[in-house]
Amino acid sequence: MWEAGIQHIELEKGSKGLGFSILDYQDPIDPASTVIIIRSLVPGGIAEKDGRLLPGDRLMFVNDVNLENSSLEEAVEALKGAPSGTVRIGVAKPLP
Rank of each mutant, 00 (worst) to 15 (best):
64 D>M: 06
44 G>I: 01
54 L>K: 15
67 L>A: 02
37 I>P: 00
41 L>Q: 01
50 D>L: 02
44 G>K: 08
84 S>R: 08
13 K>Q: 14
9 I>G: 01
96 P>E: 15
14 G>I: 08
92 A>F: 07
31 P>M: 08
86 T>I: 10
57 D>R: 04
33 S>M: 07
56 G>N: 10
4 A>Q: 14
17 G>I: 02
17 G>D: 11
19 G>H: 00
11 L>V: 08
91 V>I: 11
6 I>R: 06
38 I>G: 01
8 H>T: 12
57 D>H: 10
83 P>A: 10
40 S>H: 09
4 A>P: 06
92 A>Y: 06
43 P>R: 06
3 E>S: 12
10 E>W: 06
55 P>C: 13
39 R>F: 03
63 N>A: 04
74 E>I: 07
33 S>Y: 07
57 D>K: 02
17 G>P: 11
65 V>C: 12
75 A>T: 05
51 G>E: 04
80 K>I: 07
43 P>I: 05
7 Q>P: 02
76 V>S: 12
29 I>R: 13
41 L>V: 08
42 V>F: 08
17 G>N: 08
64 D>C: 10
16 K>E: 05
93 K>M: 03
51 G>I: 01
19 G>P: 02
55 P>A: 15
31 P>D: 10
8 H>E: 06
17 G>T: 05
88 R>H: 13
36 I>D: 01
94 P>V: 05
35 V>G: 07
27 D>Y: 05
53 L>T: 04
14 G>H: 14
96 P>C: 07
40 S>Y: 07
67 L>G: 02
54 L>W: 14
86 T>M: 09
55 P>L: 06
47 A>R: 01
13 K>M: 13
6 I>D: 03
77 E>R: 12
89 I>M: 09
68 E>H: 06
14 G>L: 06
70 S>A: 08
4 A>C: 08
66 N>S: 14
87 V>Y: 02
62 V>M: 05
23 L>P: 00
49 K>C: 06
80 K>Y: 07
49 K>T: 12
75 A>L: 01
42 V>A: 14
66 N>H: 12
68 E>A: 13
13 K>Y: 07
10 E>L: 11
49 K>S: 10
22 I>T: 03
53 L>S: 02
6 I>E: 03
23 L>H: 15
26 Q>P: 10
27 D>W: 04
59 L>T: 01
53 L>R: 01
29 I>G: 15
48 E>I: 04
45 G>V: 02
44 G>R: 12
70 S>P: 04
26 Q>V: 08
36 I>H: 09
28 P>I: 10
69 N>A: 13
22 I>S: 02
59 L>P: 00
68 E>L: 08
12 E>R: 12
54 L>V: 09
24 D>I: 02
32 A>V: 14
29 I>N: 14
2 W>L: 04
41 L>R: 04
74 E>D: 15
58 R>T: 01
80 K>D: 10
59 L>E: 00
18 L>Y: 04
66 N>R: 07
56 G>K: 12
56 G>M: 10
66 N>W: 09
27 D>A: 08
4 A>D: 15
92 A>N: 08
11 L>E: 00
28 P>N: 12
55 P>G: 15
67 L>F: 08
73 E>S: 11
30 D>K: 11
88 R>A: 06
35 V>H: 11
46 I>F: 09
72 L>W: 04
84 S>E: 05
37 I>A: 14
65 V>D: 13
14 G>M: 13
81 G>S: 14
73 E>Q: 11
28 P>K: 14
43 P>T: 14
51 G>L: 02
17 G>E: 06
73 E>M: 10
87 V>W: 02
46 I>N: 15
9 I>H: 02
59 L>I: 05
